[in-house]
Design a protein around this nucleic acid. Sequence first.
DNA 1: CGCTTCGCGTAGACACTGTCTACCTCTCTG
DNA 2: CAGAGAGGTAGACAGTGTCTACGCGAAGCG
Lengths: 195, 195
Amino acid sequence: MSDQDTAGLRARLVQAGVDLLTEEGVQALSLREIARRAGVSHGAPRRHFPTHLSLLSAIARQGFADLADKVAADIDGHRTDPRAQLMALGRGYLDFALAHRGMFELMFRHDLLESNQLGLRETSLPLFQILVDLVSRVQPRSDVPPPVVAGALWSNLHGIAQLWRWGSLQLATGTDDVEPLLRAALDAHLGPAGR
Amino acid sequence: MSDQDTAGLRARLVQAGVDLLTEEGVQALSLREIARRAGVSHGAPRRHFPTHLSLLSAIARQGFADLADKVAADIDGHRTDPRAQLMALGRGYLDFALAHRGMFELMFRHDLLESNQLGLRETSLPLFQILVDLVSRVQPRSDVPPPVVAGALWSNLHGIAQLWRWGSLQLATGTDDVEPLLRAALDAHLGPAGR
DNA sequence: CGCTTCGCGTAGACACTGTCTACCTCTCTG
DNA sequence: CAGAGAGGTAGACAGTGTCTACGCGAAGCG
Protein backbone atom coordinates (compact mmCIF):
# COMPACT_ATOMS: atom_id res chain seq x y z
CA MET A 1 0.00 0.00 0.00
CA SER A 2 1.65 3.23 -1.10
CA ASP A 3 1.41 6.39 0.99
CA GLN A 4 -0.79 7.81 -1.72
CA ASP A 5 -3.40 5.30 -0.65
CA THR A 6 -3.04 5.94 3.03
CA ALA A 7 -3.64 9.66 2.55
CA GLY A 8 -7.14 10.88 3.26
CA LEU A 9 -9.48 10.38 0.36
CA ARG A 10 -10.66 13.94 0.60
CA ALA A 11 -7.25 15.37 -0.28
CA ARG A 12 -6.69 12.67 -2.88
CA LEU A 13 -9.93 13.60 -4.63
CA VAL A 14 -8.97 17.26 -4.77
CA GLN A 15 -5.55 16.36 -6.15
CA ALA A 16 -7.03 14.04 -8.74
CA GLY A 17 -9.36 16.86 -9.73
CA VAL A 18 -6.49 19.32 -10.10
CA ASP A 19 -4.55 16.86 -12.24
CA LEU A 20 -7.54 16.11 -14.41
CA LEU A 21 -8.24 19.82 -14.72
CA THR A 22 -4.77 20.67 -15.98
CA GLU A 23 -4.67 17.69 -18.30
CA GLU A 24 -8.11 17.76 -19.86
CA GLY A 25 -9.91 20.94 -18.87
CA VAL A 26 -13.05 21.84 -17.02
CA GLN A 27 -15.52 19.74 -18.95
CA ALA A 28 -13.62 16.60 -17.98
CA LEU A 29 -14.26 17.22 -14.29
CA SER A 30 -17.17 14.86 -13.85
CA LEU A 31 -17.63 13.45 -10.40
CA ARG A 32 -17.33 9.89 -11.65
CA GLU A 33 -14.14 10.56 -13.58
CA ILE A 34 -12.50 12.19 -10.57
CA ALA A 35 -13.49 9.19 -8.46
CA ARG A 36 -12.03 6.86 -11.11
CA ARG A 37 -8.77 8.82 -11.08
CA ALA A 38 -8.62 8.56 -7.32
CA GLY A 39 -9.20 4.83 -7.59
CA VAL A 40 -12.51 4.66 -5.77
CA SER A 41 -16.10 3.98 -6.72
CA HIS A 42 -18.38 6.74 -7.92
CA GLY A 43 -20.24 6.83 -4.62
CA ALA A 44 -17.18 7.37 -2.46
CA PRO A 45 -16.79 11.15 -2.89
CA ARG A 46 -20.21 11.63 -1.32
CA ARG A 47 -18.75 10.78 2.12
CA HIS A 48 -16.49 13.85 1.89
CA PHE A 49 -18.34 16.19 -0.47
CA PRO A 50 -22.13 16.24 -0.33
CA THR A 51 -22.42 17.29 -3.95
CA HIS A 52 -20.48 17.60 -7.16
CA LEU A 53 -20.32 21.37 -6.81
CA SER A 54 -18.79 21.18 -3.36
CA LEU A 55 -15.96 19.03 -4.72
CA LEU A 56 -15.37 21.45 -7.58
CA SER A 57 -15.42 24.30 -5.07
CA ALA A 58 -12.68 22.61 -3.08
CA ILE A 59 -10.61 22.28 -6.25
CA ALA A 60 -11.17 25.95 -7.08
CA ARG A 61 -10.21 26.94 -3.56
CA GLN A 62 -6.90 25.23 -4.17
CA GLY A 63 -6.52 27.36 -7.28
CA PHE A 64 -7.22 30.60 -5.41
CA ALA A 65 -4.62 29.63 -2.82
CA ASP A 66 -2.05 28.84 -5.52
CA LEU A 67 -2.74 32.16 -7.25
CA ALA A 68 -2.36 34.10 -4.01
CA ASP A 69 0.93 32.33 -3.26
CA LYS A 70 2.28 32.92 -6.72
CA VAL A 71 1.38 36.60 -6.78
CA ALA A 72 2.82 37.12 -3.30
CA ALA A 73 6.07 35.51 -4.42
CA ASP A 74 6.16 37.60 -7.61
CA ILE A 75 5.70 40.78 -5.60
CA ASP A 76 8.43 39.88 -3.14
CA GLY A 77 10.93 40.13 -5.95
CA HIS A 78 10.63 43.94 -6.04
CA ARG A 79 10.52 44.84 -2.40
CA THR A 80 11.12 48.54 -2.85
CA ASP A 81 9.11 49.97 -5.72
CA PRO A 82 5.30 49.74 -5.44
CA ARG A 83 4.95 50.54 -9.14
CA ALA A 84 7.17 47.59 -10.05
CA GLN A 85 5.27 45.43 -7.58
CA LEU A 86 2.01 46.28 -9.30
CA MET A 87 3.55 45.38 -12.61
CA ALA A 88 4.70 42.07 -11.15
CA LEU A 89 1.22 41.47 -9.75
CA GLY A 90 -0.40 42.10 -13.10
CA ARG A 91 2.06 39.93 -14.94
CA GLY A 92 1.61 37.21 -12.34
CA TYR A 93 -2.16 37.33 -12.70
CA LEU A 94 -1.96 37.02 -16.47
CA ASP A 95 0.71 34.34 -16.26
CA PHE A 96 -1.47 32.28 -13.98
CA ALA A 97 -4.52 32.71 -16.21
CA LEU A 98 -2.60 31.57 -19.27
CA ALA A 99 -0.51 28.85 -17.65
CA HIS A 100 -3.34 27.23 -15.68
CA ARG A 101 -6.13 27.71 -18.17
CA GLY A 102 -8.45 25.07 -16.81
CA MET A 103 -8.02 26.15 -13.22
CA PHE A 104 -8.50 29.82 -14.02
CA GLU A 105 -11.67 29.01 -15.92
CA LEU A 106 -13.04 26.93 -13.07
CA MET A 107 -12.24 29.64 -10.54
CA PHE A 108 -14.62 32.06 -12.21
CA ARG A 109 -17.31 29.65 -13.31
CA HIS A 110 -19.77 30.55 -10.61
CA ASP A 111 -22.29 28.09 -12.03
CA LEU A 112 -19.92 25.28 -11.08
CA LEU A 113 -19.11 26.60 -7.62
CA GLU A 114 -21.02 27.13 -4.42
CA SER A 115 -20.57 30.86 -4.81
CA ASN A 116 -23.22 31.60 -2.23
CA GLN A 117 -21.38 29.57 0.33
CA LEU A 118 -19.24 31.63 2.61
CA GLY A 119 -15.54 31.47 1.94
CA LEU A 120 -15.30 31.29 -1.81
CA ARG A 121 -16.09 34.74 -3.10
CA GLU A 122 -14.08 36.00 -0.16
CA THR A 123 -11.05 34.03 -1.29
CA SER A 124 -9.99 36.83 -3.61
CA LEU A 125 -10.25 39.51 -0.95
CA PRO A 126 -6.69 39.25 0.46
CA LEU A 127 -5.31 39.58 -3.04
CA PHE A 128 -7.52 42.61 -3.59
CA GLN A 129 -6.33 44.11 -0.34
CA ILE A 130 -2.74 43.90 -1.54
CA LEU A 131 -3.85 45.61 -4.73
CA VAL A 132 -5.50 48.45 -2.81
CA ASP A 133 -2.40 48.92 -0.67
CA LEU A 134 -0.08 49.13 -3.64
CA VAL A 135 -2.40 51.49 -5.49
CA SER A 136 -2.65 53.87 -2.56
CA ARG A 137 1.12 53.84 -2.25
CA VAL A 138 1.57 54.73 -5.91
CA GLN A 139 -1.17 57.36 -5.84
CA PRO A 140 -1.05 58.90 -2.35
CA ARG A 141 -3.40 61.73 -3.24
CA SER A 142 -5.86 60.94 -6.00
CA ASP A 143 -9.42 62.22 -6.26
CA VAL A 144 -10.61 58.68 -6.93
CA PRO A 145 -10.64 56.44 -3.84
CA PRO A 146 -8.00 53.66 -3.96
CA PRO A 147 -10.54 50.81 -3.76
CA VAL A 148 -12.21 52.12 -6.91
CA VAL A 149 -8.90 52.44 -8.75
CA ALA A 150 -7.94 48.98 -7.55
CA GLY A 151 -11.30 47.61 -8.65
CA ALA A 152 -10.95 49.17 -12.08
CA LEU A 153 -7.42 47.84 -12.41
CA TRP A 154 -8.38 44.36 -11.30
CA SER A 155 -11.26 44.41 -13.78
CA ASN A 156 -8.83 45.40 -16.47
CA LEU A 157 -6.43 42.57 -15.64
CA HIS A 158 -9.27 40.11 -15.46
CA GLY A 159 -10.78 41.29 -18.72
CA ILE A 160 -7.44 41.00 -20.50
CA ALA A 161 -7.00 37.49 -19.15
CA GLN A 162 -10.51 36.51 -20.20
CA LEU A 163 -10.50 38.01 -23.69
CA TRP A 164 -6.96 36.90 -24.38
CA ARG A 165 -7.77 33.31 -23.51
CA TRP A 166 -10.80 33.57 -25.73
CA GLY A 167 -8.58 34.79 -28.57
CA SER A 168 -10.56 37.94 -29.24
CA LEU A 169 -7.82 40.39 -28.30
CA GLN A 170 -5.25 38.81 -30.56
CA LEU A 171 -7.76 39.05 -33.39
CA ALA A 172 -8.76 42.62 -32.55
CA THR A 173 -5.40 44.19 -31.83
CA GLY A 174 -3.54 42.07 -34.36
CA THR A 175 -0.69 41.13 -32.03
CA ASP A 176 0.40 37.97 -30.23
CA ASP A 177 1.96 39.69 -27.24
CA VAL A 178 -0.03 40.57 -24.11
CA GLU A 179 2.69 42.80 -22.76
CA PRO A 180 1.59 46.04 -24.51
CA LEU A 181 -1.93 45.58 -23.20
CA LEU A 182 -0.71 44.97 -19.68
CA ARG A 183 1.51 48.04 -19.87
CA ALA A 184 -1.31 50.15 -21.31
CA ALA A 185 -3.63 49.06 -18.50
CA LEU A 186 -1.15 49.91 -15.77
CA ASP A 187 -0.18 53.23 -17.32
CA ALA A 188 -3.83 54.12 -17.71
CA HIS A 189 -4.85 53.43 -14.13
CA LEU A 190 -1.69 54.61 -12.39
CA GLY A 191 -0.33 57.20 -14.78
CA PRO A 192 2.73 56.76 -17.02
CA ALA A 193 5.66 54.93 -15.47
CA GLY A 194 8.31 57.58 -14.95
CA ARG A 195 6.25 60.54 -13.92
CA MET B 1 -52.24 26.15 -37.01
CA SER B 2 -50.66 29.37 -35.83
CA ASP B 3 -48.02 31.12 -37.85
CA GLN B 4 -45.59 30.20 -35.08
CA ASP B 5 -45.93 26.62 -36.26
CA THR B 6 -45.57 27.39 -39.94
CA ALA B 7 -42.33 29.27 -39.32
CA GLY B 8 -39.16 27.37 -40.00
CA LEU B 9 -38.16 25.13 -37.15
CA ARG B 10 -34.62 26.47 -37.23
CA ALA B 11 -35.67 29.98 -36.22
CA ARG B 12 -38.19 28.61 -33.76
CA LEU B 13 -35.51 26.61 -31.99
CA VAL B 14 -33.26 29.65 -31.67
CA GLN B 15 -36.15 31.70 -30.32
CA ALA B 16 -37.09 28.98 -27.85
CA GLY B 17 -33.49 28.91 -26.75
CA VAL B 18 -33.37 32.67 -26.24
CA ASP B 19 -36.56 32.56 -24.19
CA LEU B 20 -35.33 29.68 -22.09
CA LEU B 21 -32.01 31.44 -21.62
CA THR B 22 -33.55 34.64 -20.29
CA GLU B 23 -36.01 32.76 -18.10
CA GLU B 24 -33.85 30.05 -16.58
CA GLY B 25 -30.21 30.67 -17.44
CA VAL B 26 -27.49 28.86 -19.29
CA GLN B 27 -27.63 25.55 -17.46
CA ALA B 28 -31.25 25.10 -18.57
CA LEU B 29 -30.25 25.14 -22.23
CA SER B 30 -30.27 21.41 -22.81
CA LEU B 31 -30.97 20.30 -26.33
CA ARG B 32 -33.95 18.26 -25.25
CA GLU B 33 -35.50 21.08 -23.25
CA ILE B 34 -35.16 23.49 -26.17
CA ALA B 35 -36.81 20.93 -28.41
CA ARG B 36 -39.62 20.49 -25.87
CA ARG B 37 -40.13 24.27 -25.79
CA ALA B 38 -40.32 24.37 -29.55
CA GLY B 39 -42.86 21.54 -29.44
CA VAL B 40 -40.84 18.95 -31.32
CA SER B 41 -39.15 15.69 -30.44
CA HIS B 42 -35.60 15.59 -29.14
CA GLY B 43 -34.27 14.35 -32.46
CA ALA B 44 -35.73 17.15 -34.55
CA PRO B 45 -33.04 19.80 -33.93
CA ARG B 46 -30.48 17.50 -35.49
CA ARG B 47 -31.93 18.24 -38.96
CA HIS B 48 -30.98 21.91 -38.56
CA PHE B 49 -28.08 21.85 -36.13
CA PRO B 50 -25.66 18.94 -36.32
CA THR B 51 -24.77 19.23 -32.67
CA HIS B 52 -25.85 20.79 -29.43
CA LEU B 53 -23.00 23.30 -29.58
CA SER B 54 -24.01 24.52 -33.01
CA LEU B 55 -27.49 25.31 -31.72
CA LEU B 56 -26.06 27.18 -28.74
CA SER B 57 -23.75 29.01 -31.13
CA ALA B 58 -26.72 30.17 -33.16
CA ILE B 59 -28.37 31.45 -29.98
CA ALA B 60 -25.18 33.28 -28.99
CA ARG B 61 -24.91 34.79 -32.45
CA GLN B 62 -28.34 36.29 -31.86
CA GLY B 63 -26.99 37.78 -28.67
CA PHE B 64 -24.00 39.33 -30.40
CA ALA B 65 -26.32 40.86 -32.99
CA ASP B 66 -28.60 42.26 -30.29
CA LEU B 67 -25.64 43.73 -28.43
CA ALA B 68 -24.28 45.37 -31.57
CA ASP B 69 -27.70 46.86 -32.36
CA LYS B 70 -28.16 48.15 -28.83
CA VAL B 71 -24.73 49.75 -28.65
CA ALA B 72 -25.14 51.34 -32.08
CA ALA B 73 -28.45 52.81 -30.96
CA ASP B 74 -26.96 54.06 -27.70
CA ILE B 75 -24.15 55.77 -29.57
CA ASP B 76 -26.50 57.44 -32.03
CA GLY B 77 -27.92 59.45 -29.17
CA HIS B 78 -24.74 61.56 -28.93
CA ARG B 79 -23.91 62.17 -32.54
CA THR B 80 -21.41 64.92 -31.93
CA ASP B 81 -19.11 64.14 -29.03
CA PRO B 82 -16.90 61.03 -29.36
CA ARG B 83 -16.13 61.10 -25.63
CA ALA B 84 -19.84 60.99 -24.82
CA GLN B 85 -20.28 58.26 -27.42
CA LEU B 86 -17.63 56.16 -25.71
CA MET B 87 -19.36 56.67 -22.40
CA ALA B 88 -22.63 55.57 -23.99
CA LEU B 89 -20.90 52.54 -25.47
CA GLY B 90 -19.47 51.54 -22.12
CA ARG B 91 -22.73 52.02 -20.33
CA GLY B 92 -24.53 50.08 -23.06
CA TYR B 93 -22.09 47.19 -22.75
CA LEU B 94 -22.54 47.00 -18.99
CA ASP B 95 -26.31 47.43 -19.27
CA PHE B 96 -26.48 44.54 -21.66
CA ALA B 97 -24.30 42.33 -19.47
CA LEU B 98 -26.48 42.99 -16.43
CA ALA B 99 -29.86 43.01 -18.14
CA HIS B 100 -29.31 39.87 -20.23
CA ARG B 101 -27.26 37.88 -17.76
CA GLY B 102 -27.85 34.47 -19.28
CA MET B 103 -27.17 35.62 -22.82
CA PHE B 104 -24.02 37.50 -21.85
CA GLU B 105 -22.74 34.45 -20.04
CA LEU B 106 -23.42 32.19 -22.99
CA MET B 107 -21.75 34.62 -25.39
CA PHE B 108 -18.43 34.21 -23.63
CA ARG B 109 -18.66 30.55 -22.68
CA HIS B 110 -16.35 29.29 -25.37
CA ASP B 111 -16.71 25.76 -24.08
CA LEU B 112 -20.34 25.88 -25.16
CA LEU B 113 -19.73 27.48 -28.53
CA GLU B 114 -18.02 26.47 -31.73
CA SER B 115 -15.42 29.12 -31.15
CA ASN B 116 -13.11 27.64 -33.75
CA GLN B 117 -15.80 27.88 -36.36
CA LEU B 118 -15.50 30.93 -38.54
CA GLY B 119 -17.98 33.65 -37.84
CA LEU B 120 -18.34 33.59 -34.10
CA ARG B 121 -15.20 35.08 -32.68
CA GLU B 122 -15.41 37.56 -35.53
CA THR B 123 -18.86 38.66 -34.43
CA SER B 124 -17.39 41.12 -31.98
CA LEU B 125 -15.08 42.70 -34.54
CA PRO B 126 -17.48 45.37 -35.91
CA LEU B 127 -18.16 46.53 -32.38
CA PHE B 128 -14.43 46.65 -31.74
CA GLN B 129 -13.92 48.66 -34.92
CA ILE B 130 -16.36 51.28 -33.65
CA LEU B 131 -14.40 51.36 -30.42
CA VAL B 132 -11.11 51.91 -32.25
CA ASP B 133 -12.63 54.71 -34.32
CA LEU B 134 -13.97 56.54 -31.29
CA VAL B 135 -10.73 56.10 -29.39
CA SER B 136 -8.63 57.50 -32.21
CA ARG B 137 -10.99 60.47 -32.47
CA VAL B 138 -10.68 61.21 -28.77
CA GLN B 139 -6.91 60.71 -28.78
CA PRO B 140 -5.74 61.90 -32.20
CA ARG B 141 -2.04 61.77 -31.29
CA SER B 142 -1.20 59.28 -28.58
CA ASP B 143 2.02 57.29 -28.31
CA VAL B 144 -0.02 54.12 -27.79
CA PRO B 145 -1.69 52.84 -30.97
CA PRO B 146 -5.51 53.16 -30.93
CA PRO B 147 -6.15 49.41 -31.28
CA VAL B 148 -4.16 48.78 -28.12
CA VAL B 149 -5.99 51.51 -26.20
CA ALA B 150 -9.27 50.15 -27.53
CA GLY B 151 -8.28 46.62 -26.54
CA ALA B 152 -7.36 47.71 -23.05
CA LEU B 153 -10.61 49.65 -22.70
CA TRP B 154 -12.69 46.76 -23.98
CA SER B 155 -10.93 44.45 -21.56
CA ASN B 156 -11.71 46.84 -18.77
CA LEU B 157 -15.40 47.00 -19.67
CA HIS B 158 -15.55 43.24 -20.01
CA GLY B 159 -13.77 42.68 -16.73
CA ILE B 160 -16.09 45.03 -14.90
CA ALA B 161 -19.09 43.24 -16.38
CA GLN B 162 -17.69 39.85 -15.43
CA LEU B 163 -16.60 40.64 -11.90
CA TRP B 164 -19.69 42.70 -11.18
CA ARG B 165 -21.98 39.86 -12.21
CA TRP B 166 -19.93 37.55 -10.03
CA GLY B 167 -20.39 39.95 -7.11
CA SER B 168 -16.71 40.31 -6.37
CA LEU B 169 -16.48 44.02 -7.16
CA GLN B 170 -19.37 44.94 -4.89
CA LEU B 171 -17.66 43.01 -2.12
CA ALA B 172 -14.25 44.50 -2.84
CA THR B 173 -15.10 48.15 -3.41
CA GLY B 174 -17.95 48.19 -0.93
CA THR B 175 -20.42 49.90 -3.24
CA ASP B 176 -23.54 48.87 -5.14
CA ASP B 177 -23.11 51.28 -8.03
CA VAL B 178 -21.13 50.41 -11.16
CA GLU B 179 -21.06 53.98 -12.38
CA PRO B 180 -17.87 55.05 -10.50
CA LEU B 181 -16.01 52.08 -11.91
CA LEU B 182 -17.19 52.80 -15.43
CA ARG B 183 -16.17 56.43 -15.07
CA ALA B 184 -12.79 55.48 -13.61
CA ALA B 185 -12.13 53.12 -16.50
CA LEU B 186 -12.96 55.71 -19.16
CA ASP B 187 -11.01 58.45 -17.43
CA ALA B 188 -8.04 56.12 -17.08
CA HIS B 189 -7.87 55.05 -20.70
CA LEU B 190 -8.88 58.33 -22.33
CA GLY B 191 -7.74 60.89 -19.81
CA PRO B 192 -10.03 62.94 -17.56
CA ALA B 193 -13.26 64.18 -19.11
CA GLY B 194 -12.80 67.89 -19.48
CA ARG B 195 -9.21 68.13 -20.51
C1' DC C 1 -51.95 9.33 -62.88
C1' DG C 2 -48.62 6.42 -60.39
C1' DC C 3 -44.22 5.93 -58.63
C1' DT C 4 -40.12 7.37 -56.51
C1' DT C 5 -37.28 10.27 -54.02
C1' DC C 6 -36.20 12.96 -50.29
C1' DG C 7 -36.66 16.59 -46.69
C1' DC C 8 -37.95 16.52 -42.03
C1' DG C 9 -39.87 14.94 -37.77
C1' DT C 10 -40.54 10.65 -34.51
C1' DA C 11 -39.04 7.10 -31.42
C1' DG C 12 -35.92 4.13 -29.37
C1' DA C 13 -31.28 2.78 -28.15
C1' DC C 14 -26.73 3.68 -26.06
C1' DA C 15 -23.27 5.44 -22.96
C1' DC C 16 -22.65 8.76 -19.68
C1' DT C 17 -23.86 11.97 -15.92
C1' DG C 18 -25.24 13.34 -10.57
C1' DT C 19 -27.83 11.80 -6.82
C1' DC C 20 -29.97 8.51 -3.71
C1' DT C 21 -30.19 4.19 -1.11
C1' DA C 22 -29.14 -0.39 0.59
C1' DC C 23 -25.42 -3.05 1.84
C1' DC C 24 -20.85 -4.56 3.57
C1' DT C 25 -16.63 -4.40 5.97
C1' DC C 26 -13.47 -2.67 8.67
C1' DT C 27 -11.98 -0.45 13.30
C1' DC C 28 -12.61 1.44 17.57
C1' DT C 29 -14.89 1.29 22.04
C1' DG C 30 -17.48 0.04 26.32
C1' DC D 1 -16.58 -9.92 22.99
C1' DA D 2 -20.60 -7.38 21.14
C1' DG D 3 -22.08 -3.39 18.97
C1' DA D 4 -21.86 0.83 16.64
C1' DG D 5 -20.49 3.81 13.24
C1' DA D 6 -17.27 5.74 9.69
C1' DG D 7 -16.38 5.06 5.02
C1' DG D 8 -16.29 2.59 0.56
C1' DT D 9 -19.21 -0.46 -2.90
C1' DA D 10 -22.81 -1.31 -6.09
C1' DG D 11 -27.14 -0.73 -8.13
C1' DA D 12 -31.08 2.12 -9.34
C1' DC D 13 -33.16 6.29 -11.34
C1' DA D 14 -34.01 10.30 -14.19
C1' DG D 15 -31.74 13.19 -17.20
C1' DT D 16 -28.40 14.26 -20.96
C1' DG D 17 -26.24 14.28 -26.24
C1' DT D 18 -25.70 11.51 -30.11
C1' DC D 19 -26.81 7.89 -33.39
C1' DT D 20 -29.95 4.99 -36.12
C1' DA D 21 -34.08 3.05 -38.07
C1' DC D 22 -38.48 4.32 -39.32
C1' DG D 23 -42.52 7.01 -41.20
C1' DC D 24 -44.95 10.45 -43.49
C1' DG D 25 -46.14 13.73 -46.77
C1' DA D 26 -45.08 16.67 -50.55
C1' DA D 27 -42.56 17.55 -54.74
C1' DG D 28 -40.67 15.83 -59.12
C1' DC D 29 -41.05 13.04 -63.19
C1' DG D 30 -42.03 9.43 -66.83
